[in-house]
């Protein structure tokens, strides 16, 4: 990779200051960024590690909301987010154990890979992405492939997930990368059901509103039977056509609902 300056601040303020430099970039767990840099596809002048900021790591719950520090590794979420079991299970299924020990929720959400798991949880939960500067609703946060509402130098300090009554995540893995070929997160709240889909959409993670309406009426797998998605709106690649992904979205949605019941 190209060389860069490495800094590891101890506070969010120091990190923000360091990130003001042109071409400086925040480093979470690096599980996506470092492979990208090894391919020389990114060349930050400075990497600002968030791994030394104790405030950014942790899982807490007040019963209604689960809050993750932005630099909390997936493995910590998997073992400590018992208040939101579907989220803990999702975190425990990302990548592999060694990746989960380094990769962070903030890093995943900031990258917004169209096949990553976390974006579906954030969107289906109506989560709030908390940054050093503001709070962003998940519905406003995801803006297409690898694109988010984050500004330059803005870092995710926490993510707040309203805890649903029931929820489940079903991932159908792409056989090589083990990212989601299709991942569906279904969450039932008092005011309705939210369904978010990752891995499939041409524009990245999206809410399947027809399914949400149907499931809000009847939270059963059969409720989505009459629905269909267009393969034209789905990613088509060597691992699966758009039509196949559209089909899988429905299958995974039904399975997620079944798993909730």
């Amino acid at each position: 990779m190209y060389n860069f300056e490495f800094v590891k601040p101890a506070t969010v303020d120091e990190a923000i200051a360091a990130l003001r430099e042109e071409d400086a970039q925040a480093l979470g767990g690096g599980q996506t960024l470092l492979p990208t840099m090894k391919q020389r596809l990114a060349m930050p002048s400075k990497l600002v590690s968030l791994g030394g900021i104790a405030d950014l790591v942790g899982v807490s719950s007040d019963g209604a909301t689960l809050t993750l520090g932005g630099a909390t590794p997936h493995a910590v979420v998997a073992s400590n987010a018992g208040a939101y079991p579907a989220l803990a299970a999702l975190a425990g299924g990302i990548g592999d154990p060694a990746v989960r020990n380094r990769g962070t929720v903030g890093g995943s959400l900031a990258n917004n890979d169209p096949a990553a798991c976390y974006p579906s949880a954030a969107l289906a939960s109506g989560a709030t992405i908390v940054t050093n500067a503001r709070e962003i609703a998940a519905d406003d946060y995801f803006q297409g492939l690898f694109s988010t509402a984050l500004d330059e130098g803005e870092i995710i300090t926490a993510v707040r997930f309203p805890i649903p009554q029931r929820a489940n995540y079903q991932k159908f893995e792409q056989p090589a990368s083990r990212f989601a070929l299709v991942g569906v997160f279904v969450a039932q709240y008092a005011d309705g059901v939210r369904v978010a889909v990752t891995g499939a959409g041409n524009d990245g993670v999206f809410r399947w509103s027809e399914a949400e309406a149907a499931l809000s009426g009847s939270f059963t797998p059969d409720a989505v039977d009459g629905l269909s998605l267009s393969g034209d709106d789905m990613i088509g690649d060597l691992h699966g056509t758009g039509a196949y992904r559209a089909h899988l979205v429905k299958v995974m949605t039904k399975r997620a609902v079944a798993a909730c019941n």
Partner: peptide, 9 residues
């Protein structure tokens, strides 16, 4: 903790 040393500075 197990980590991938090729993906850690």
């Amino acid at each position: 903790k197990a980590v991938k040393s090729c993906t850690m500075l």
